[in-house]
């Protein structure tokens, strides 16, 4: 494992901690898209089917379990928690995420590394993760104002993707064998989706002002 991959995993972990902190400290999930959170839960559940078949390292196994557990916990909180669920912006979180699931599944059936149950679900999870942030970005754009923790959550999530790209570039030059093109192409698409958000995030940071997205 190289430093970029580790930094990517850590910023991913931080983004989840920031989100949990926001929900726990403010007892509110305003500004957070339940659609995106449900998609992430589905992404981790379908990607980590290999928990039962392949062992990579203790680190990998623990991280997989953390990602599955935290994404399920967040969905549970937003749907079931008596107080938290009241702050959910249901009216503006209307992105039809089922289409993303359908499109990702069709693409996975057509484009995969190997025609096996596990490989098709792995490809599905990669495609779905690339698109999963869309409901969240649309919700932020609709609500206009972005609170601090929500802004940081999306920022760390984007940083995680950027580090993964650096990781692939590094691996490309240090390892002879390179066969992760599905993950790389999807990862580039995924990171590109954050470009707009990053732009406004850095402007607000530079001006020391509250993050606002144009309507």
């Amino acid at each position: 494992m190289n430093i970029f991959r580790f930094a990517g995993d850590m910023t991913h972990l931080i983004s989840i901690l920031v989100l949990l902190l926001k929900i726990y400290a403010t007892k509110s999930c305003s500004g957070i898209s339940l659609k995106t959170q449900e998609l992430y839960a589905l992404v981790f559940l379908t990607r980590y089917l290999d928990l039962f078949t392949d062992f990579i390292s203790v680190y990998n196994t623990i991280m997989k379990l953390v990602f599955i557990a935290s994404s399920l916990a967040i969905v549970w909180c937003m749907r079931m928690h008596r107080v938290v669920r009241r702050s959910y912006d249901k009216e503006i979180d209307t992105f039809r995420h089922y289409f993303l699931i359908l499109a990702s599944f069709l693409l996975a059936v057509l484009v995969h590394e190997k025609f096996t149950f596990q490989e098709i679900f792995w490809a599905f999870s990669i495609y779905l993760e690339a698109l999963a942030i869309l409901p969240q970005l649309v919700l932020l754009q609709r609500s206009g104002n972005v609170d601090n923790l929500t802004g940081q959550y999306v920022f760390f999530l984007g940083a995680y993707r950027a580090f993964y790209i650096l990781n692939w570039i590094y691996r490309y030059f240090t390892e002879q064998h390179f066969s992760r093109w599905i993950a790389c192409l999807s990862g580039i698409v995924q990171t590109a989706l954050y470009a707009d958000f990053f732009y406004y995030y850095f402007i607000s940071w530079k001006n020391n002002a509250k993050l606002q997205l144009p309507a």
Binding site: D9, I56, N60, M63, K114, W122, S179, R180, A183
Partner: peptide, 10 residues
Amino acid sequence: NVESEPHDEL
């Protein structure tokens, strides 16, 4: 040979 390897990234 394109033997699929286990996915070592998260």
